[in-house]
């Protein structure tokens, strides 16, 4: 075990870890912004809204994220989309995780018991008001856990953008393994950073979940 090597390259990994965090965060934000509208479309009675949403979820959950990234980054130029690795990565990850998040959100909304909707409608609230005042606040608490799972998956999935040359943790681990021939040290270093990021994120999610605990 070459400790001296580990210490020497840690700064590079730390920088790469920051990139991982930034990429994950931006993709997370993108995914969420897609997922909310998509979830509502999916729940809507309107065919023209429901079908595209179902197709989106089916396609992006049913194909590998890596392929999606490659289509955007390598195939993009053919359809006029020329993006830098970083942007392509965030876009690809965001669209991908968005499809999973859509289902998480939809699930949470459906889980709020129908009785709640019925009670609020019978009080005279419109569909929209019932959603806003009664269903969504409760669904919010229910969706934190599944969205949390999505987020952790996203952080691990961010390693895929190394394949389109984004200089994050996995890329750095690969690069240094190639130059130093010390795969175990590089694995330990990279995994430590991932474990820290993921553990901190999990804690934050649990915290957030705790704040939403209603009586059951």
């Amino acid at each position: 075990m070459d400790y001296e090597l580990i210490l020497r390259v840690t700064p590079f990994f730390a920088k790469a870890a920051w990139t991982t965090v930034v990429v994950s965060f931006l993709s997370f934000a993108l995914g969420l912004s897609i997922a909310f509208p998509a979830a509502f479309c999916r729940l809507s009675q309107n065919r023209f809204l429901q079908i595209p949403s179902r197709v989106y979820v089916s396609v992006f959950r049913g194909t590998p994220c890596l392929i999606q990234l490659f289509v955007i980054y390598f195939g993009g130029p053919q359809i006029g989309i020329q993006l830098e690795p970083f942007m392509a990565g965030v876009l690809g990850l965001g669209i991908n995780i968005g499809s999973y998040m859509t289902e998480s959100i939809r699930g949470a909304i459906l889980a709020v018991s129908r009785g709640q909707t019925e009670a609020s409608r019978s009080l005279g609230l419109s569909k929209f008001q019932a959603m806003r005042k009664v269903v969504l606040p409760q669904a919010a608490g229910l969706m934190i856990s599944p969205l949390g799972v999505n987020t952790i998956a996203l952080i691990k999935g961010s390693s895929l953008v190394s394949a389109i040359s984004v200089l994050e943790l996995a890329y750095t681990a690969h690069r240094f393994t190639n130059s130093t021939y010390r795969p175990f040290e590089m694995f330990i270093l990279a995994s430590t950073f991932y474990l820290v990021i993921i553990t901190l994120t999990s804690k934050a999610i649990r915290n957030l979940n705790g704040r939403f605990a209603y009586e059951k």
């Binding site: 691990k156 999935g157 961010s158 390693s159 895929l160 190394s162 943790l169 996995a170 681990a173 690969h174 393994t177 021939y181 795969p183 175990f184 590089m186 694995f187 990279a190 995994s191 991932y194 474990l195 993921i198 553990t199």
Partner: peptide, 20 residues
């Protein structure tokens, strides 16, 4: 550990590590 690290990283470990 194996749940908290990306598959890609684990693949690198085996691909480069096993020959060693």
């Amino acid at each position: 550990v194996f749940r908290g690290t990306p598959l890609l990283l684990q693949l690198f470990l085996f691909y480069f590590g096993l020959p060693q």
